[in-house]
């Protein structure tokens, strides 16, 4: 009796320790980056020699970094808007209408999420070369749309299935045409999914490195490719500051958006 309780207590302890270890493993690198970004030392590692914002200040003077940051933000914003719009329309067609080849189109839309990014990167690049098109920022946007579209379609589809068709039917019977019904009924009820997909696409695009390396126009850097090229030269503490900023963007934005989506979902129900 006592032994059983003891062994259960021991098992429970082990689980606790393990959980803590997993969290440490996951978050230690992030913490290290954030902490070191405030390190006064010349070298991008421990020990801490003092606390300062000098690496952030230096970052603000670094034109290449600022340009890369700007590029990433613009690409991510454009991608998010276009991709979400396409995703909503696609999901709407797939969920609400019957047409031949529907299953196939669904599979094809989801496929880019399953194919390795490197393959997609090379593929799109070869296609562009074959079509004799230059590598422009639009190619990058196009590529990011392709990468993120499956997730948008999945997110919006899931929500759309949950929106009962009778709402739309009721609106139609009351005299609203299809477009008015979409604007007044479907879209507002879909809003949480739209917000979620905007954020999702933004982060997917903003974070992407593998595919971006293939697709970016020559001489143009995105944030992740910029960091990579900086690392090739030296491990400057600037990178820690940059990393911290990226963490703030890619974690903070979804948190804000998640809260917003939850608020919309609640007021929408």
């Amino acid at each position: 009796m006592n032994a059983v309780a003891e062994s259960r207590g021991l098992g429970w302890r082990l689980v606790q320790v393990f959980t803590v270890l997993v969290y440490v493993f996951m978050f230690a690198p992030i913490m290290v980056v954030v902490i070191l970004s405030f390190n006064d030392s010349q070298f991008g590692g421990f020990p801490m020699t003092g606390i300062s914002f000098r690496w952030y200040a230096k970052l603000m003077e670094n034109d290449a970094v600022l340009r890369a940051f700007q590029t990433s933000i613009i690409v991510a914003l454009i991608t998010a808007v276009i991709c979400s719009a396409l995703g909503v329309l696609g999901a709407l067609a797939l969920v609400r209408y019957e047409f031949p080849g529907k299953e196939w189109i669904n599979t094809i839309l989801i496929a880019p999420a399953l194919v390795p990014e490197t393959v997609l990167g090379v593929g799109l690049l070869l296609l562009m070369r074959w079509a004799e098109q230059p590598r422009t920022l639009w190619l990058l946007v196009l590529g990011h749309i392709m990468l993120a579209l499956p997730y948008v379609v999945l997110v919006v589809q899931a929500r759309l299935i949950g929106i009962k068709r009778v709402y739309e039917e009721a609106a139609l019977s009351l005299g609203a045409n299809r477009i008015q019904t979409f604007r007044e009924i479907t879209l507002p009820l879909l809003m949480p999914a739209v917000v979620a997909s905007l954020l999702l696409v933004f982060t997917i695009s903003f974070d992407n490195i593998t595919a971006s390396m293939f697709w970016r126009p020559s001489g143009v850097e995105t944030m992740p490719t910029q960091i990579l090229s900086m690392l090739k030269v030296s491990i400057s503490p600037e990178i820690n500051a940059l990393g911290t900023l990226m963490i703030i963007v890619t974690v903070g934005l979804p948190l804000i958006g998640g809260g917003l989506a939850r608020y919309l979902a609640r007021s929408g129900r």
């Binding site: 039917e169 009721a170 009924i185 507002p188 007021s267 129900r269």
Partner: peptide, 12 residues
């Protein structure tokens, strides 16, 4: 005028 089994009032 249509009335459905599950009312179908616009929730938002």
């Amino acid at each position: 005028g249509l009335v459905f089994q599950n009312y179908a009032l616009f929730p938002h």
